[in-house]
Amino acid sequence: MARPADCRYLASHEWARRDKAEVVIGITDFAVEHLSDLTFLDLPKVKDKVEAGKPFGEIESVKAVSDLNAPVSGEVTAVHEDLAESLETLAKDPFGQGWMIRVKPSHPAEWEKLLDGTAYLKVCDSEGGH
């Protein structure tokens, strides 16, 4: 799957995209494929604070659970509430309809520390991906 050029990434497979003054956050196609058989998604609430590199939620498959790490710090402004009920969306369109939360960044400089597409591709390759 082609990864959008306007996204930045964490090595733990979350993506971030700037949209005006906010950052939209989700997980990558690589993460979705490796988790497989998704069963449960736990997201924060609007107005919750998230911290860069720290978990903002959890995603579960039948026999695994993974933290969802925030690429940037800030306050949650929107949560994709319906996603938990339609986890298949994550497989169909992880970078679009599969978005998870929107955050109003408190430390905009954090953006620059995120991986760009090329660096992220290397991470996937080293984990035996494609």
Binding site: T39, F40, E60, S61, V62, K63, A64, V65
Partner: peptide, 12 residues
């Protein structure tokens, strides 16, 4: 619901 359990979630 095995993801609740220690063999998966360990310290959590």
């Amino acid at each position: 619901f095995q993801t609740r359990e220690q063999h998966i979630r360990r310290e959590k």
